[in-house]
Design a protein around this nucleic acid. Sequence first.
DNA 1: TTACTCATATCGGTTACCGAGATCTTAACA
DNA 2: TGTTAAGATCTCGGTAACCGATATGAGTAA
Lengths: 111, 111
Amino acid sequence: MSKPSDLVQGTLDLLLLKLLALEPLHGWAIGIRLKQVSGDVLQVSDGSLYPALHKLEQQGWIKSEWRNTENNRRAKFYSLTRPGRAQLAKETASWNRLAGAISGVVRLNEA
Amino acid sequence: MSKPSDLVQGTLDLLLLKLLALEPLHGWAIGIRLKQVSGDVLQVSDGSLYPALHKLEQQGWIKSEWRNTENNRRAKFYSLTRPGRAQLAKETASWNRLAGAISGVVRLNEA
DNA sequence: TTACTCATATCGGTTACCGAGATCTTAACA
DNA sequence: TGTTAAGATCTCGGTAACCGATATGAGTAA
């Protein structure tokens, strides 16, 4: 029981990269921010979020740093690297291409 | 080695349902038609296509019938059922909702 | 001291898709 | 006639992605 209803599979990386391109955030905040900027449509569970973040960091697209939040709690802040920016551009282009094509097909109407 | 570059994960069912809503087709033709209507952007391998078709049929969203093609070859023609139409509507709405939200996030620009 | 929120993390399971391989039929060609 | 190309269907094994459950710990407020 775990198909994503609050997310399109394969777009999580793109979304994370994009959010971190706007400003550095810690993991916990990313989940909240995603929900917020998508008007409550998109959502990630933390069981998906943290592994995804680790993977992105391992690939060198984001980097992390332990800092304190406004509430004086320790949190790992992530920010985009230069290769991350390139990757974001790539994934954005790919998304636009594919999503555009799918939407086009979906809009076809019967002859 | 098998992440979809010619497809957004989770959208195959929607696409198949949509193509069959336009007209009954056999499996082989579906692959060709998908590529065609998407302007060569979308593509399915038959290793994905046939299992997906079986799954849709099992769920009662499409039904099949052995017939002959124009070339006098036996082929299983699939067509949408009434529940299939409802499912298509559901998946279309879901796609529009999610894809719209993602595109919205992707388009955000730095402050 | 209890309980709640903030915050990070892992593990196991399911779904989804792809690649490779197998088979059968009809048409075209040498 | 033999053989190859193309049309058509199908299954199996592998990997990627995401979710649910679960665990842990620190700071804050009652």
